[in-house]
């Protein structure tokens, strides 16, 4: 069941991290409104391979159900495209009109260098987590799970922060390429839980230091990150991160 939409794409093509890139025009015909945005790219790539004139377009994707955080297209100037609370893989062509021209670029940030076409390197996020985004508990040391009751509100709020999928849309959306929303989501999740309390000072200081080392920009509280976040991670996490950070610098004991 192919459809009847015709879409004009302008796609960023870049051979590798060292070469110059440019926007290239492609026309995709017979697009069905039920297709996902990535399935449209599958159709285009199939054609490019069959024709043999141009190499297929490289892009990151994996689960295609909005949870792994791997897909990362900057569509018409917005990370993950026009819809609220949706990843690129869950964006469907019914959100566009026949004849639309769509510009597709990779995440743009110094800390996310382009690998090829639309795929970028986001391992800076892994290094930030490695610097402190955890609770130092070795396997086998845990007490019974219900011996530590946690108020439902705190648990729910921690869960909301933990919903971050690490896709990097916040960085791509930010004019300063700041990673504050990503970092604050992890800091918040662990600060809201009693298990995370013993390390809260070192955690926030180390994670912020690593974030700076990686070359992410500063936060100027514009809020584009949260507005574009496919998991709608709240800006209040950044406020909490700032509180945690200042308190940790003063070495104070918060309760």
């Amino acid at each position: 069941m192919s459809g009847n939409m015709n879409i004009n794409l302008k796609v960023w093509r870049q051979k590798n991290g060292k070469s110059q890139g440019k926007l290239v025009d492609y026309k995709v015909e017979g697009v069905s409104p039920d297709m996902s945005f990535l399935e449209m790219f599958d159709v285009l790539n199939d054609r490019l391979v069959s024709e043999g004139k141009d190499e297929p377009i490289a892009f990151d994707h994996d689960c295609r159900e909005g949870i792994c955080g791997m897909c990362s297209m900057y569509i018409n100037g917005r990370p993950h495209g026009p819809n609220q609370g949706v990843t690129t893989c869950q964006l469907h062509m019914r959100s566009f009109k026949d004849g639309d021209t769509i510009v597709v670029e990779p995440w743009r940030a110094a800390a996310f260098p382009v690998i090829k076409d639309l795929a970028v390197n986001r391992s800076a996020f892994d290094r930030i987590i490695a610097s402190g985004g955890f609770i130092s508990v070795n396997t086998g040391n845990a007490q019974d799970a219900n011996s530590l009751p946690i108020a439902k509100d705190n648990a729910d709020e921690a869960f909301a922060a933990a919903a971050c999928i690490g896709c990097g849309a916040c960085v791509a959306a930010c004019k300063n390429s700041s990673a504050m929303l990503f970092v604050s989501a992890k800091v918040s999740q662990l600060a809201l839980l009693p298990q995370g309390d013993p390390e809260r000072n070192t955690r926030v200081l180390n994670m912020v230091a690593q974030m700076d080392t990686e070359g992410f920009g500063a936060c100027t509280n514009t809020g584009a990150c949260s507005a574009e976040c496919p998991k709608e991670i709240s800006l209040t996490n950044i406020a909490r991160l700032n509180r945690e950070y200042f308190a940790a610098q003063l070495g104070s004991d918060r309760s």
Binding site: P149, K152, A162, Q189, L193
Partner: peptide, 22 residues
Amino acid sequence: GNIIDQSVASGVPFAREYGGLL
């Protein structure tokens, strides 16, 4: 059972009841 204990200890935010239990 140990898996649940281990996961909670490492900060996994499981759903909870109002009494704070899982």
